[in-house]
Amino acid sequence: MVTLLNMVIGGLLLGGLYALIAMGLTLQYGVARVLNISHGEFIMLGGMTTWTLYTVFGINPLVCLAICGPIAFVLGFGIHRVLFRRLQASAPSQGAFESSSMLASFGLLFIIQNLASIAWGTEIRAYTYLAIPVHLAGAVFQANRLVALGCAVAIGVAFYIFVARTRMGKAIRAAAQDPATAGLMGVNINSVLALCFGLGAAMAGAAGVLISMIYPVHVVMGMPYTVIAMIVVALGGLGSIPGSFIGGFVLGLVGSIVAYMDPGLSLVAYYGIFILLLLVRPTGIMGR
């Protein structure tokens, strides 16, 4: 019983991070139509920046959240303005844009990774923060994982309310469903797409901060997270924000259960689910 509980709680802790990462990619791919291969690089930037801020300047990682999130937003917003918006304007069709933007994001991955290795080197970096054991229903977890889960859920819920309730949030949903008609309603479509790309980057950056509180970080850590985000987005249904939130937790639970049997098998299990899903329900859990 205790091991099962252990696995479930472990899965939820992992799932919170996955949910956050996947929501970010949902915004970039589901709304802005950029399958952003460099998504994980923003996670890496968040993690490495936090390591520097904490170990060199002694800034609390939770404060780093409020620093890295906005910086990643500005970076993402700017990248959409100067790169993806132009690609979109010059693309002959939406399909052509989706493939050219994916290739461009590949290029972005290499640029960011190389700049990061100049800045930080290629060593694995780690720090300890809130590594206090917490007893939870017979199982033991480190406090930093609980804090990370709490932050991820808080960001997810806040974002959900933003999208469900506010004028700008509704514009995002409208743009996701039918950008041309949203434009006829008065939505400045280019701004909304850049906003979504920036918010996606901010979520990746924030996830990077939270990840660095728990795991070691290094400049090539991003790619596996990008892959996980893609799997979760496929799992939750393309463009569905609640879908990616729930999908993140589902994958986290699976990962935790599989890792309990053999830690080396979690990625294998993720891909297994991914392929099975594509065969059985290609539209995802919440997809149409």
Partner: peptide, 23 residues
Amino acid sequence: IPEGRRLFTQMSVGENLEMGAYV
């Protein structure tokens, strides 16, 4: 008011109307 209605099908009637008042 476009051809073929082009409603936001995943939104409620009220939200569709609200979107009309976006400006």
